[in-house]
Amino acid sequence: DIEITTNGEEDAKRVIKELQKRNLEYHIEVHGNQWVIKVR
């Protein structure tokens, strides 16, 4: 598993777009303004 910590929603959406392009499965956890994306 890979864990990507982003700085808020805009940053997270940019990362998610890339993950979707590669058809990767991911899970999002929001901790305040930090979005942690866990990639399987």
Score class of each variant (00 low, 15 high):
residue 11 D to E: 14
residue 40 R to H: 15
residue 35 W to N: 04
residue 30 V to S: 04
residue 10 E to R: 10
residue 2 I to D: 05
residue 14 R to E: 09
residue 21 K to T: 07
residue 38 K to Y: 09
residue 36 V to Y: 04
residue 23 N to R: 08
residue 10 E to Q: 10
residue 4 I to S: 01
residue 20 Q to F: 04
residue 18 E to M: 11
residue 15 V to K: 03
residue 14 R to C: 14
residue 10 E to S: 08
residue 29 E to V: 11
residue 3 E to I: 15
residue 18 E to V: 08
residue 21 K to P: 01
residue 16 I to F: 02
residue 21 K to Q: 11
residue 7 N to Q: 11
residue 20 Q to A: 09
residue 13 K to A: 12
residue 29 E to I: 10
residue 26 Y to S: 01
residue 11 D to V: 08
residue 35 W to E: 04
residue 2 I to H: 11
residue 7 N to H: 12
residue 40 R to Q: 13
residue 35 W to T: 13
residue 31 H to A: 09
residue 26 Y to F: 13
residue 12 A to Y: 07
residue 8 G to S: 15
residue 37 I to M: 00
residue 23 N to V: 03
residue 30 V to D: 01
residue 21 K to A: 12
residue 20 Q to I: 14
residue 23 N to Y: 05
residue 16 I to H: 01
residue 22 R to Q: 11
residue 36 V to I: 14
residue 29 E to F: 08
residue 4 I to T: 02
residue 37 I to W: 00
residue 23 N to L: 06
residue 32 G to S: 02
residue 17 K to N: 09
residue 40 R to F: 12
residue 26 Y to P: 02
residue 29 E to N: 04
residue 34 Q to H: 13
residue 20 Q to W: 04
residue 8 G to Y: 07
residue 2 I to E: 06
residue 20 Q to R: 11
residue 20 Q to E: 14
residue 8 G to D: 13
residue 39 V to A: 02
residue 13 K to C: 14
residue 31 H to N: 13
residue 18 E to G: 06
residue 16 I to V: 08
residue 6 T to Q: 02
residue 19 L to T: 01
residue 5 T to R: 15
residue 27 H to I: 14
residue 30 V to A: 04
residue 24 L to N: 02
residue 25 E to A: 10
residue 26 Y to A: 03
residue 8 G to L: 07
residue 12 A to I: 05
residue 19 L to I: 06
residue 8 G to K: 08
residue 12 A to S: 03
residue 1 D to S: 12
residue 22 R to H: 11
residue 16 I to T: 03
residue 21 K to N: 10
residue 22 R to N: 09
residue 29 E to D: 07
residue 13 K to R: 14
residue 24 L to Q: 04
residue 38 K to W: 03
residue 32 G to W: 02
residue 36 V to C: 05
residue 29 E to T: 11
residue 21 K to W: 06
residue 31 H to L: 11
residue 4 I to K: 01
residue 1 D to T: 13
residue 33 N to P: 14
residue 19 L to E: 00
residue 40 R to C: 15
residue 31 H to M: 11
residue 15 V to P: 01
residue 33 N to A: 05
residue 2 I to A: 05
residue 12 A to N: 02
residue 16 I to Y: 01
residue 3 E to D: 07
residue 32 G to I: 03
residue 10 E to V: 09
residue 17 K to L: 13
residue 32 G to F: 04
residue 27 H to D: 14
residue 39 V to E: 00
residue 19 L to R: 00
residue 32 G to A: 03
residue 4 I to Q: 01
residue 4 I to R: 02
residue 34 Q to C: 15
residue 1 D to Y: 15
residue 36 V to S: 01
residue 10 E to M: 09
residue 9 E to H: 08
residue 1 D to Q: 12
residue 3 E to G: 03
residue 34 Q to L: 10
residue 22 R to Y: 09
residue 35 W to G: 04
residue 15 V to D: 00
residue 33 N to V: 03
residue 17 K to Y: 06
residue 23 N to F: 06
residue 37 I to S: 00
residue 37 I to V: 07
residue 14 R to N: 07
residue 37 I to T: 01
residue 1 D to P: 10
residue 36 V to T: 04
residue 40 R to M: 14
residue 9 E to K: 10
residue 39 V to S: 02
residue 28 I to G: 00
residue 36 V to H: 05
residue 2 I to K: 05
residue 15 V to L: 11
residue 29 E to Y: 06
residue 18 E to T: 05
residue 21 K to G: 07
residue 14 R to F: 08
residue 40 R to S: 12
residue 13 K to N: 11
residue 7 N to C: 15
residue 14 R to Q: 09
residue 29 E to G: 02
residue 36 V to M: 02
residue 38 K to G: 02
residue 27 H to S: 15
residue 26 Y to I: 07
residue 2 I to M: 13
residue 11 D to N: 11
residue 10 E to H: 09
residue 38 K to V: 15
residue 34 Q to K: 12
residue 38 K to S: 11
residue 7 N to F: 14
residue 10 E to F: 08
residue 34 Q to G: 04
residue 10 E to W: 09
residue 5 T to S: 08
residue 19 L to W: 00
residue 31 H to F: 10
residue 6 T to Y: 05
residue 18 E to I: 12
residue 34 Q to D: 15
residue 2 I to Q: 06
residue 39 V to G: 01
residue 21 K to H: 08
residue 19 L to A: 02
residue 33 N to F: 05
residue 5 T to L: 13
residue 5 T to E: 06
residue 17 K to R: 13
residue 31 H to C: 13
residue 24 L to F: 06
residue 15 V to Y: 06
residue 18 E to R: 06
